Amino acid sequence: MDLSIIIVNYNTKQLTLNCLESVYQSITDYQYEVILVDNASRDDIVDVVRNTYPQVRLIANTVNLGFSKANNQGMRITDGRYVLLLNSDTVVETDTLDIMLRFMDEHPTVGASGCKVVLPDGSLDKACRRGFPTPSATFFYVSKLSKFFPKNSRINAYHREDLDPNEAYPIDCLVGAFMMVRREAIDQVGLLDERFFMYFEDTDWCYRLQEAGWINYYYPKTTILHYKRASSRHKPFRIIYEFNRAMALFYNKHYKSKYPIWVTGLMYMGIGAKLFAAMTFNVVSKMIKR
């Protein structure tokens, strides 16, 4: 098996069916398999997939285990030379799998690769090629200062808008919506860290891959469509909390020991302030809508 594609579904029935249809319309000589992990969706997606795509390998969870655990469930039953994390709210082009697999075969030092990801309005999903969220990069991002200096590689070190999205290059972070990873790299660094329920698990994986000597590569010679946050839009408070918790977890895991205590204090204060502001905005918005 050349490629094992893992799709995690949570209440995104139609989007997931669209994603599967796009995958099975792929034109390639490579062999691939699809593993769908359902996180206790409240619809009949499992039965529909069994009837419509009997070739899909299904894992039906009775509770929502989160993105990391569900992907790891899928990875544990795969044997492809490459593993592709693919969001359920994406649509791939007919040549996407072929182009990315050929790229990986031709570049054995690349541990993980990602293609160009665009949103429904045609704009770039900035998450598809990012820098690591170092304390300085996080400060400029959270404070919004990066918006005023989009071409400054130091100030815009997180979203890297100084880089041409149509050019190929090594990059710190790819996005878990489409991330193709070499089996040897996974064997070396391990699976996703299951402490991340959702958010930053892809960043953490990219960090560990790079630390182990692998190259993460952005390769925009093919494009996918991403209907972002489709499975999370109905639970804003949980999503806000998980994002900020994941940010703190990533900092504690990779940066806390490398920076003085005052930097850690500022990071905690910033994350706390961001969480409070987001929660407050959410409450006020709901009150206004009423």
Rank of each mutant, 00 (worst) to 15 (best):
M247C: 14
A278V: 08
M269K: 06
E194K: 09
K256P: 09
S231H: 08
K235R: 15
Y199G: 04
M180V: 02
A157F: 07
K151L: 14
V181L: 09
E184W: 07
Y217I: 11
V284R: 14
F243V: 06
M198N: 12
Y219A: 03
A168H: 12
Q210L: 08
C206Q: 11
T280R: 00
W205P: 02
I155A: 06
F250E: 00
M179N: 10
P150C: 06
E211L: 05
I186A: 02
T280Y: 01
F178A: 11
F196V: 13
Y158F: 15
T280F: 00
D204W: 04
G272H: 02
A157G: 14
W214T: 03
I288Y: 04
P236Q: 06
P220A: 13
L275T: 15
L249H: 12
Y217G: 09
A273K: 08
I224V: 08
P150Y: 06
I215Y: 13
D187R: 15
M247V: 11
H254W: 08
I261R: 11
Y268W: 10
M247W: 14
N152Y: 05
W262S: 14
F196G: 09
L209C: 01
D172P: 14
I271N: 09
F250C: 00
T203H: 00
Y219S: 12
Y241W: 15
K274E: 15
G270V: 01
R195F: 02
Y169P: 00
S232E: 14
E211S: 11
N166C: 03
